[in-house]
Design a protein around this nucleic acid. Structure first.
Lengths: 276, 276
DNA sequence: CGCCTAATTGAACCCGGTCAACCTTAGTGG
DNA sequence: CCACTAAGGTTGACCGGGTTCAATTAGGCG
């Protein structure tokens, strides 16, 4: 039922890092370093509740979560998904009242890091500031892409685009198997994310399958024709990949801004030294 | 023709700051302090071009701009608007290739600040890091709200919501006159922002007018019934106002994270000391 | 076995898109 | 001073993708 159970949890190669580019890496290391309390959450539980203020960051160690908002008419809009390895909860720390709630899709273990514990780290490793900063900007990019998704694309393109985004993000996190990956989402969740009804998500998935673009069943999706699906969905992974690439290349400037003379090359310690 | 000509430009009370909350304030002061080159741009000119990399931040001193992306089918999606006083171009600095283009709506004067000039400032005023950080998170919130706009709301609600957002943001910037404000946007631009065709934007505006919710003409909009329009549009200014409010209350922590013991009260210098 | 959640499929309806025509206004050049 | 042009705004008729409502099936789990 979990869907992600295929991938190891704590056993995942420790130095390889679980998850997403920048933050992730820092995140897990950060969590390891601080030994922040790790808590288990069941599926369908709210971890962050809209309207409340928080003073801890969270690291998603293994599960799937999503950030969402309930509208006045009761509709639920999912803004983005939080995949294994990602940090979350920044916004809830910075704002007086969190704008969104965050809920688990699967059973999930979450490390929480009191922000108090972070400030001191900035002294030793200002690169962390940059990583967090970049993560915030990256998040805007993802949300922006979702905006374009719902505003401009057809149902097929929306669903296809979401699947491709998840695939690429999971691949970076090492959670794919060829062109196939476990997806613990219900059609209702997908609909709430791309702005379609459950009924139409269903029809759309069928259409994609009948066109031999994807294949699915048992909480697992296989992309049969990456090219064609990308074409159909107007998918361009720049907004995901470039970010990862960019960080890899220049991750060491003192401050969030890169080009400070020679900052683009590498001389500072690698960023997984935080906890050691 | 400009539409914003009503409001003074350079003459605006200098210490009151032009624009938007956080960044804005820092932005203008920052621009003043560094005396970054101020350049004039005509309307409908691209200032940032998608795909290029930049190493300067920009401050919008007086005009209207928007961030947008051209899709593969030629459609244009506007992601958000950049109002007088706002900083922009962060993303283009942090990413190898900017995801979006930024174009002027009106004639605009723009101050550019080389990022090289900013790093040193961080030493003296780490609060600036927080301001920029917060701005990035805030931007995500605005884009997220636009996402909800296009995904979940009816045409009326979308247009109404956009108008209300612009109104609130302009009010903070001191660019409103009662419930009325100058709006230099064409119906095509509005459509590209909320995901509707020009034709339907027109019909929607007419409907809103016939319902006595708004009134418009000559590049100017008056909100006749703020409550009713908010209700109809599912508008809640938390995502804008709370941000501003939050900053006002706690703007001084050493690092992007607020609650560091006593950081919520004020002891550090006010944030407009950057340039002086 | 029976309950509940999720997936599936059908039929009628409607919001917003598309296409096309016309109007209004500002700018331009003779 | 007027004729011409172009951009933006306005309106109508028709169409279609996606919603809505509703019924049925399939798959855990007590």
């Amino acid at each position: 039922m979990l869907g992600v159970s295929r991938t190891s949890r704590r056993e995942a190669a420790p130095q390889a890092s679980l998850g997403l580019p920048e933050l992730t890496y820092d995140g897990t290391d950060l969590a390891r370093g601080i030994k922040g309390a790790v808590k288990q959450f069941h599926r369908n539980k709210d971890i962050v509740v809209a309207g409340r203020h928080y003073s801890t960051l969270f690291v998603n160690l293994d599960g799937w979560l999503f950030r969402y908002k309930i509208l006045h008419d009761g509709d639920r809009q999912i803004v983005d998904f939080i995949l294994p390895g990602q940090i979350f909860g920044l916004q809830a720390c910075l704002f007086q009242a969190s704008l969104y709630s965050i809920e688990t899709v699967t059973d999930t273990s979450v490390a929480s890091i009191p922000v108090d514990a972070i400030d001191p780290l900035f002294d030793k490793n200002p690169g962390l500031a940059k990583a967090l900063f970049r993560s915030a900007v990256r998040e805007t990019a993802i949300v922006g892409e979702h905006l374009i998704d719902t505003a401009r694309r057809s149902a097929c393109a929306r669903v296809g685009h979401l699947l491709l985004e998840l695939f690429v993000r999971l691949r970076v996190a090492g959670q794919t198997d060829g062109l196939s990956f476990a997806i613990p989402l219900t059609q209702e969740i997908i609909g709430d994310a791309v702005g379609l009804t459950t009924v139409h998500v269903n029809r759309t998935l069928r259409a994609l399958r009948e066109d031999k673009l994807i294949q699915f069943g048992d909480k697992r999706i296989t992309i049969l024709d990456f090219e064609a699906l990308s074409e159909l969905s107007d998918f361009d992974d720049t907004y995901l990949g470039e970010t990862a690439g960019a960080l890899r290349r220049e991750s060491v400037s003192q401050y969030p801004f890169g080009t400070h003379g020679n900052a683009t090359s590498s001389e500072a310690p690698p960023r997984h030294d935080i906890g050691t």
